[in-house]
């Protein structure tokens, strides 16, 4: 049994806008172990990115606030840390990779400079030592000829290389937990395959736990050990990746997996989920998927289903599941 790095319990994050309270994350619980990749899958606006930002406490202030729950990282609740203590945690214990490699690097600094920044901040090393660390971070991400690459500017690199540099910055202090928010979405298919293989390698050598946020089931299948499927601010089903694919229980998970076109099958009409997710401003009292669900019962519209463990950590929130 490997060590649990991150334990999120009943996290609630809301945005307060003119139109009212937007419950972006509404009672989410999950955990990430050492050497494990936990996937958070869902469609846009389901709250997966907000969950990621909440873990770093980097919500856009003052509109976004964590209003309840616990985030236990390496044994302590980071919601109780001061802002200063939190800064020491970011980059060192948790770090994050953002989606777009084109905008997450600063164009006016060299790649080496940008990696060195976080190393200097957290490790207080002297100059030559810093350079060694920078090179080792680039090497970890398998960037060829790192000694000369550190003097390059981001515009001199291709998209795939840039995304590796972003990865090198995130991994430079060897964090315990890496949050990757759609890191492969902007990349081409063959580059994506390289990137995923690379991260599997990194995980083997550094023991890092990865929270992988994505909408792409193909990437989930290749990358993640366990998956949480999010819908309208809640996790509706959590299970190991193979269970999610082979034995999905929540009707949303089933529908979502069925609506992904498969390369292996052909010409069958695609399964589609009609309608739209509910507005987070005005959530229904019962199950959030009720309005689009094909197995809906009266109870579903009235009461929120509880999360039920059906064995081996397979958690489902659905009244149909006993």
């Amino acid at each position: 049994m490997s060590r649990t790095i991150l334990q999120v319990e009943d996290l609630h994050t809301s945005f307060y806008t003119r139109a009212g309270e937007v419950k972006a994350v509404d009672g989410v619980s999950f955990h990430v172990d050492e050497k494990e990749t936990f996937g958070l899958v869902g469609e846009s606006a389901c709250g997966k990115t907000v969950t990621g930002l909440s873990l770093l406490r980097l919500l856009p202030e003052p509109a976004g606030r964590i209003v309840g729950g616990k985030i236990i990282l390496n044994g302590r609740n980071i919601l109780e840390l001061s802002k200063k203590e939190m800064r020491a945690v970011r980059g060192k214990e948790i770090s994050m990779i953002l989606q777009d490699p084109m905008t997450s690097l600063n164009p006016v600094y060299t790649v080496g400079n940008q990696i060195a920044e976080s190393i200097k901040l957290h490790q207080g090393l002297r100059d030559e030592k810093v350079t060694d660390e920078v090179i080792s971070a680039l090497r970890l991400l398998k960037i060829p000829a790192p000694e000369s690459r550190i003097r390059d500017y981001p515009f001199q690199m291709s998209g795939g290389m840039r995304q590796r540099v972003v990865g090198a910055i995130a991994m430079s202090c060897r964090p315990n937990l890496l949050i990757a928010d759609e890191p492969t979405t902007a990349l081409d298919a063959t580059i994506q395959a390289q990137y995923i293989a690379l991260f599997q390698d990194i995980q083997r050598t550094t023991n890092v736990g990865i929270l992988f946020i994505t909408h792409d089931f193909g990437v989930v299948a290749k990358m993640c050990h366990r998956v949480g499927v999010m819908y309208a601010g809640r996790i509706v089903e959590t299970a190991t990746t193979s269970k999610i694919f082979k034995d999905p229980r929540h009707p949303y998970t089933v529908a979502l997996i069925n609506s992904v076109p498969r390369l292996e099958e052909k010409n069958k009409r695609l399964f589609s989920i009609e309608g739209q997710p509910p507005s987070l401003l005005n959530l229904p009292p019962g199950c959030r998927f009720a309005a689009r669900c094909d197995k809906v019962m009266d109870k579903c519209r009235e009461q929120q289903p509880p999360e039920v463990d059906i064995g081996d950590g397979h958690l489902v929130s659905c009244w149909k599941v006993k």
Binding site: E43, S44, H215, D216, F217, A255, L256, S259, V260, P261, L270, F271, S272, I273, E274
Partner: peptide
């Protein structure tokens, strides 16, 4: 989004 893609296709 994935579930919408199927509708459009």
């Amino acid at each position: 989004d994935v579930s919408i893609r199927a509708q459009i296709m």
